[in-house]
Simulated scan of single mutants.
Amino acid sequence: MPPFSSADFLVAALRSAGCVFAEDEAELILSTARTPDEATAMLERRVSGLPLEHVLGWAGFHGLRVAVEQGVFVPRRRTEFLVDLAVAQAPHASLVVDLCCGSGAVGAALAASLDGPELHAADIDPAAVRCARRNVAPFGGHVHEGDLFAALPETLRGRIDVLAANVPYVPTGEVDLLPAEARDHEPLVALDGGVDGLDILRRVTAEAPRWLATGGCLLVETSERQAPLAVEAFARSGLTARLAVCDELYANVVIGTSP
């Protein structure tokens, strides 16, 4: 692909590749690239099917520019709803945990929105852990590698005010139906939630009460179809559960409060 000479060249190439928002993507590439050659290389990666956020190296999330490396789950705009709910639920939270943190976008957004809480994040994927460390470092956050709560320091048990867990919730049989950008370029461990998509959610809700402070809250994103079963899982664990829905973002978040 020859070096481009104008934004029009980028727009035409992106549109030919099937990018619906070609003008917006071209503007982002031009504003991110430091040289024409770098912009051309970014265009080539995007046209080959790489997610735009992986091409740019960042994603916009809740007013932040979050670093996103290749092979790491890209934060979705709908998850901003979970952040807003957490801030409204616990505006004075002093200890926040971002479980299944991926890039650490949720944890960073919570830290930016709250008054300097102690922040911890955890993920089982080493690539996600490396990326999250970059994103939570400005907030003094700590990132741990491991399987759910096993990754967290025992000193956090019974003290967490906000536990945000953006768990994978795509049913195994539906992973192949995801857009190619997610299916081919994001880690399966961040997408596949088991047969009905709720395996990880059930594990989190079962153990969360032992980690939450009195009055602490757990927030988990799920799908509209799965929401009733997710609420039941929260209730079985002893949490007071409610479902919050944002039609604009197609977002469904279950909030559970510790007695």
Rank of each mutant, 00 (worst) to 15 (best):
residue 45 R to H: 08
residue 31 S to F: 05
residue 30 L to C: 10
residue 19 C to K: 07
residue 78 R to I: 10
residue 32 T to S: 14
residue 34 R to G: 15
residue 80 E to R: 03
residue 25 E to T: 04
residue 39 A to M: 06
residue 46 R to C: 15
residue 29 I to C: 02
residue 73 F to T: 05
residue 64 L to C: 09
residue 35 T to W: 00
residue 38 E to F: 06
residue 70 Q to D: 15
residue 63 G to M: 08
residue 67 A to Y: 09
residue 43 L to S: 12
residue 24 D to C: 03
residue 59 A to F: 03
residue 50 L to Y: 10
residue 63 G to C: 12
residue 67 A to R: 13
residue 36 P to H: 02
residue 65 R to H: 02
residue 38 E to T: 11
residue 36 P to Y: 09
residue 35 T to F: 00
residue 32 T to P: 08
residue 55 V to H: 01
residue 35 T to P: 01
residue 37 D to I: 13
residue 48 S to E: 15
residue 18 G to Y: 06
residue 50 L to E: 14
residue 75 P to Y: 07
residue 69 E to W: 12
residue 67 A to V: 07
residue 60 G to E: 15
residue 50 L to R: 14
residue 62 H to L: 02
residue 53 E to W: 03
residue 45 R to K: 14
residue 75 P to G: 07
residue 22 A to E: 09
residue 58 W to V: 11
residue 28 L to Y: 00
residue 43 L to Y: 05
residue 56 L to S: 06
residue 19 C to M: 12
residue 29 I to E: 00
residue 60 G to K: 04
residue 78 R to L: 13
residue 60 G to T: 07
residue 24 D to M: 13
residue 65 R to E: 14
residue 76 R to N: 07
residue 54 H to C: 01
residue 66 V to W: 00
residue 79 T to R: 04
residue 22 A to C: 11
residue 33 A to F: 02
residue 33 A to K: 06
residue 37 D to W: 10
residue 28 L to P: 11
residue 59 A to I: 01
residue 20 V to H: 11
residue 69 E to C: 09
residue 73 F to A: 13
residue 23 E to Y: 01
residue 68 V to T: 11
residue 62 H to E: 09
residue 70 Q to I: 00
residue 73 F to D: 13
residue 76 R to E: 07
residue 31 S to L: 06
residue 76 R to C: 02
residue 19 C to W: 12
residue 71 G to K: 01
residue 29 I to R: 01
residue 37 D to E: 14
residue 28 L to D: 02
residue 71 G to L: 00
residue 60 G to H: 07
residue 59 A to M: 04
residue 29 I to K: 03
residue 28 L to H: 08
